[in-house]
Computed example of a mutant assay.
Amino acid sequence: MKRFWNWNQDGDQRQLAISGVIAPDSWIHDNVSPQVFQDELNESQGPIDLWLNSPGGDCTAASQIYTMLMNYPNDVNVKISGIAASAASVIAMAGTTVSMAPSAMLMIHNPLTIVGGQEKDLDHAAQMLVETKEAIINAYELKTNLPREKISAMMDDETWMNVNKAIELGFADQMLGDDHQPTDCYSYSDKQSDLVVLNKLKRTSQNTISVKSLQKRLSLLSH
């Protein structure tokens, strides 16, 4: 098992670092690595600072990590120190908050695969890529609230985002080192403010409270 993550403890704050290629040995046929990550995640319940610097990697591994972090009962504060590209950008979307270093980059693009075989095998692979893209869009849409069509077009174009653009589009919430003005480094809107609050509320709300209900409450508060 090639580890691409490490844990540290800083007082009550848990520190998780994900760096390099995600799952260089695919998790698809690996029952060990995902369980190890899950077990280590569950060792404590304190808030997590996730330092992320990865060019991407295995979509299946990224999806599993994203789901584990989304189900974690406390805050997960993602901090992109260098790059969060491809599959790594999916993991970033699990953050209660997403911060980026002034020089960091975030990149989204269409999923890739390598396949050989008969025509039916190629057709099957093409359909798999279509469904994989839709699944990835789900994570981006939940974080950004952008239209699916816009996200799809951005993936088609292989979109690179510096911290300013990522904040503008809702992929990030703030610039690292700019805590007093969390999203003022490019443009700030009431909509983005609501999304940041929603991300926090979704972590602490009970299952009986829907996202639509939370959005309605925010709408009432803003009037």
Results as ranks from 00 to 15, higher is better:
residue 174 Q to P: 00
residue 110 N to R: 14
residue 163 V to G: 05
residue 196 V to A: 14
residue 83 I to H: 04
residue 175 M to L: 09
residue 131 E to S: 12
residue 206 Q to P: 00
residue 97 T to K: 14
residue 89 S to K: 00
residue 91 I to E: 03
residue 140 Y to P: 07
residue 20 G to A: 07
residue 129 L to P: 05
residue 52 L to M: 03
residue 189 S to F: 07
residue 188 Y to G: 09
residue 212 K to I: 11
residue 193 S to R: 11
residue 35 Q to M: 15
residue 71 N to D: 15
residue 99 S to Q: 11
residue 78 V to H: 05
residue 132 T to I: 06
residue 190 D to V: 13
residue 106 L to A: 01
residue 140 Y to R: 04
residue 26 S to N: 03
residue 79 K to P: 02
residue 17 A to K: 10
residue 209 I to H: 00
residue 100 M to Q: 06
residue 25 D to R: 08
residue 63 S to M: 12
residue 3 R to C: 07
residue 50 L to W: 02
residue 74 N to F: 05
residue 152 S to Y: 03
residue 6 N to F: 09
residue 53 N to Q: 11
residue 212 K to F: 11
residue 58 D to E: 08
residue 46 G to V: 07
residue 101 A to Y: 04
residue 177 G to Q: 01
residue 102 P to F: 05
residue 9 Q to V: 12
residue 136 I to C: 06
residue 2 K to H: 10
residue 35 Q to I: 09
residue 190 D to M: 14
residue 124 H to L: 14
residue 114 I to G: 09
residue 181 Q to H: 15
residue 213 S to Y: 07
residue 82 G to F: 09
residue 74 N to L: 06
residue 70 M to Y: 02
residue 204 T to L: 12
residue 105 M to T: 09
residue 72 Y to V: 06
residue 20 G to W: 06
residue 197 V to L: 15
residue 77 N to M: 14
residue 75 D to K: 09
residue 44 S to T: 10
residue 82 G to T: 12
residue 32 V to N: 06
residue 61 A to R: 05
residue 98 V to I: 10
residue 48 I to R: 02
residue 36 V to R: 08
residue 43 E to M: 15
residue 75 D to L: 10
residue 54 S to D: 03
residue 219 S to L: 13
residue 207 N to Y: 12
residue 48 I to P: 00
residue 181 Q to T: 13
residue 102 P to S: 03
residue 75 D to A: 11
residue 22 I to H: 06
residue 7 W to F: 12
residue 68 M to Y: 12
residue 8 N to L: 15
residue 189 S to R: 06
residue 209 I to M: 10
residue 13 Q to E: 15
residue 14 R to P: 01
residue 14 R to I: 05
residue 187 S to Q: 14
residue 204 T to N: 09
residue 116 G to M: 10
residue 162 N to P: 01
residue 105 M to E: 12
residue 41 L to A: 03
residue 172 A to R: 03
residue 12 D to K: 10
residue 197 V to F: 05
residue 202 K to M: 13
residue 33 S to E: 13
residue 32 V to S: 08
